[in-house]
Amino acid sequence: MSCNYSKETIIDYFYQELSEADKQAFEEHLPGCEECRALLEELQTASHSLKVWKAPELHIKYVFTREREPWYSRFTVPVFSIRRHPVLASAGSIAACFLILSLVNFKMGYNRETRDFIISTSMFQKPQPQIDYTAITEKLESVQRQNIELMTQILEEYDVHQYQQTSAMMAELVQNWQLQRQMDIDAISTSFSTLQEMTGEELNKNMAATVQLIETVLLPVKFEQVKK
């Protein structure tokens, strides 16, 4: 392009997007520039040609309808709609189910050994086995009787055993006592004989000593007293 105007300016001018000042300047330039005029002419032809091509009419109307309600929406509780509060609504319905089941036949338990939590529900109660109470009482009584018999037996056995043990000990004790008495008697008899032997001499000695004492000490004192 020999003139200073770029194709961007020409296109801006062509689509009337030039600023007022730029537009004026360009319009002043235009009469003297054949090239720019030719280009505008070509743009004009192309632009006009495009107007010839018409788009067909759209003979339909797109219609959107509300999404069909999902099946569970019928079961919503007035307070909670499942779509708006899914967690609350499902929790509520579960709670409701539990309540209903507990009314019918609901069992819950905990096995301590296996640490299992057991929940069982059934619509019909299981038939309970009939308990024979007379048989149980009879059995209980027989066991009680047996126990009493056993206890008396034990006590008797114990008595016999104790008696046997005590009598044996008593016999031994009697024996020991007899032995002890025998030994005492022996000891006494020997001591008596030794005492007998001793006493003759001792008495003599003592008698002599006493006489001497009386003669030397006591008698003079008595005589003096008599004398006085």
């Binding site: 296109i11 070509e42 006009h48």
Partner: peptide
């Protein structure tokens, strides 16, 4: 802008090749 300019000029050339000129278009 340059794509539009080039596109229209390209268009113009193709139209010339098809013997479609200004007069034909204005007639239509």
């Amino acid at each position: 802008k340059s794509r539009l300019y080039n596109g229209l000029m390209h268009m113009q050339k193709l139209l010339k090749q098809l013997n479609i000129d200004k007069e034909v278009i204005y007639d239509e």
